[in-house]
Amino acid sequence: MIRPAPESRWTPVINAVLLPAVLVIAWQIWAVTLPADTRAPAPVGVVAAFFHLAGSGGLFSATLQSLGRVLLGFAFAVVFGVGLGLLMGSSRSVKDNLDPIIESFRPIAPMAVLPIAILLLGTGTPAALSIVAYAAFFPLLINTVHGVSRVDRKLVQAAMTMGVPRPRILATVILPAALPSIMLGARVAMGVAWTAIIAAELAVGAKSGGGTSGGIGQMMFVFYAYSIDLNGIVVCMIVIGVVALLIDRFFRATERWLMPWRY
């Protein structure tokens, strides 16, 4: 294909910045035209709120608290999801018997389980953890089952022919072969878990009269319900987006590091 005009090397940069910049400037102009006592967020206010929140350390510690919960819940989900996935992927009778139960829980959103988690565990960290683990469990399980069931059986037979014991086949043949699928599941699961913790913290804040659950979701709810600081809410939203992006990039980098043969 012939390009009509040679592109300057700045064209991609200009293209990337153009529309976001126009939107932000339009937002700022719109905010300036509002009466002075408005609560509407504006870019300048958001930047100011960010420096205020980051300076006090509150934003950082709330983000860290949410991340800590996600990691702990995710760890539970890895143990159960990958463990059960290996079992279901390698044994047909286990898979046939558990599939109906798994499939009937799958359409139940994590947030629908939250009321029950609150009933059973109260409004503290354990309820939030269980929601995260529940949300992350399904992508991990399904991708592990898929990965294990697609392992080249010639490899397994070769190992068995050479007298390798079963646990070692699992660790040295099946697990590496299923790893790409498991890692994909882990990346999806972590994204879902991050969304779930925000939802859980928001809902716990919203429904238990602003309990002491902490975390960035709770922080947003406090900005909404008590201090009515919309700039602060937007700062939280941006932080949530940035963390989601970093989680995704981290998992992609780990995939590349763990499985160099695929890249």
Binding site: A199, L202, M220, F223, Y224, C236, I240, G241, D248
Partner: peptide, 9 residues
């Protein structure tokens, strides 16, 4: 990357 749920407040 900003999940729909983060838009709720």
């Amino acid at each position: 990357p900003i999940s729909g749920i983060a838009w709720i407040p």
